[in-house]
Simulated assay, not measured.
Amino acid sequence: MAASPTRSPGRPSVTDHAAIERAAFALFQEQGFDDTTMDHIARAVGVGKRTLFRYFPSKNDIPWGQFDQSLAHFSRQFDAVPPTTPLADAVHGCVVAFNTFDESARDQHRFRMRLILQTPALQAHSAIKYEAWRRVIAEYVARRLSLSAGDHLPRLVGHVSLAVSVAAYEQWLDEPASSVTDLLDEQLTALRTYLA
Rank of each mutant, 00 (worst) to 15 (best):
H152K: 11
I116D: 01
T189Y: 11
N99F: 11
D151N: 11
T189Q: 15
K49F: 10
T119F: 07
R112W: 00
T15I: 03
R112D: 02
L162Q: 09
D151T: 06
N60P: 01
A3W: 13
R112I: 00
R192S: 13
L183E: 08
E21Y: 00
K59Q: 05
A168I: 08
F56I: 00
A24D: 06
A97I: 12
A42G: 04
A124L: 05
W133Y: 05
L115H: 04
L162C: 05
H73C: 06
V180Y: 07
F111Y: 09
A42V: 02
D89N: 12
L156T: 15
L87Y: 11
E103S: 10
H159M: 15
V95K: 12
L195K: 10
T85A: 07
H73G: 12
N60A: 11
E186H: 15
G10D: 00
T85K: 07
L71N: 05
R110Q: 00
H109Q: 09
H92N: 10
V157G: 01
A2Y: 13
L87K: 07
W133L: 02
A127G: 05
T100L: 12
D34V: 11
A42M: 02
V96E: 11
D182A: 15
E103M: 10
S148A: 11
V136R: 05
A177H: 14
T181N: 09
